[in-house]
């Protein structure tokens, strides 16, 4: 297991280098130069000397390879860059907002599991009945309603019938006032959990259906086990393995991809931070957030692999190769 972990960790290094190169080069593809992008029209007012000293300050006068290595060296020391717009280090801004995003992701996963798992199981056990049909219908609807649409509808209902409007100024953190915080988080979590619940449901259903047709389930049946025991001990344990993968991948998405939901519900998470950084052309922050999210994503995928090994008895990484 340790060996496998080490192998996987080493395999991630090229990916991470690739990610950093991509982010670094992407920002350099921005039309116009970085100073212009940073200052906008005000850049036109700079004298040659001011411009040159700014370029020297940001290291833009160095060759691109050197810029990359300086940037990487800073990264390794925990310096993700400095946001000109916020007047603060990018890492501080990210860490300040990350808990909101994490909370939202966990709540969304909870919603998805509470809704998706039971319906998926029921749908598989009552295969091709009305229950199954209804479950599948809701799942495909869930996959077809993008979260910005559902979010818009939810906000419409909230504002028209309850007079509530999301407002970023009102946001309270969980540790300050747990109940008020949950009140603010529950609707975005429901919106995000909805489509995720649909994928959980579909995955659970098809995995369980597949497992129920396996020989070992038939064996369990023929030796007279109660169907409840068969499902719980034999079928579900195997059927849930792909569901775990799905959840892991989805958490990765949720931690970085909540841009739209955070934006429409005015939640101060990192998705919103990234979005605003893009709008304000705050490229240091864009780089920082993107890198942070990608790193998270990669680490979660590694973690999912390990969980996978832990729960699936058929996979043993210890004796590989």
């Amino acid at each position: 297991m340790t060996r496998y972990l080490a192998q996987r960790a080493i395999a991630f290094i090229p990916t991470l280098v690739g990610v950093s190169l991509l982010v670094f080069l992407a920002i350099r593809l921005v039309p116009g130069d970085a100073i212009l992008a940073m200052l906008g029209t005000e850049a036109g007012m700079l004298t040659e000397g001011q411009r040159a000293s700014l370029e020297a300050y940001f290291g833009l006068d160095k060759p691109i390879g050197e810029q990359y290595f300086t940037w990487m060296w800073n990264l390794l020391q925990g310096n993700l860059g400095y946001s000109v717009r916020h007047g603060a280090p990018a890492l501080d801004l990210i860490l300040e907002r990350f808990p909101v995003t994490v909370e939202l992701a966990l709540l969304a996963v909870a919603v998805a599991l509470m809704v998706g798992l039971p319906i998926g199981i029921l749908s598989a056990l009552r295969h091709n009945t009305l229950i199954d049909l209804i479950g599948r219908f809701f799942a495909i609807i869930g996959l077809s309603v993008p979260n910005f649409l559902l979010g818009t509808l939810v906000i419409y209902v909230l504002s028209v019938y309850f007079g509530i409007l999301p407002n970023s100024g009102d946001f309270v953190h969980f540790q300050e006032a747990p109940l008020r915080n949950l009140e603010q988080m529950i609707f975005p979590a429901l919106v995000m959990g909805f489509s995720f619940a649909s994928s959980v449901m579909r995955m659970t259903r098809s995995a369980l259906l597949e497992v129920l047709g396996e020989d070992y389930v038939r064996t369990a049946r023929s030796k007279g086990l109660r169907s409840h025991t068969i499902i719980r001990r034999h079928a579900l344990r195997n059927a849930l393995i792909p569901v775990v993968t799905l959840i892991g991948v989805e958490i990765g998405y949720l931690l970085g991809g909540a841009v739209i939901v955070e934006q429409i519900f005015a939640l101060p998470g990192i998705g919103r931070l990234a979005y605003n950084a893009i709008l304000q052309r705050d490229y240091a922050l864009v780089q920082g957030v993107t890198l942070f999210i990608a790193l998270n994503f990669v680490l979660i995928n590694l973690f999912v692999d390990l969980v996978y090994a832990a729960i699936d008895p058929r996979i043993s990484y210890a004796h590989r190769d």
Partner: peptide, 24 residues
Amino acid sequence: MRIMDVFFAFPTILLALLVVAVLG
């Protein structure tokens, strides 16, 4: 495939946003 892995390291909407941020 390692190059493809780099692209898989980004949540899709973020990658799309990044491209649009760069290109306008």
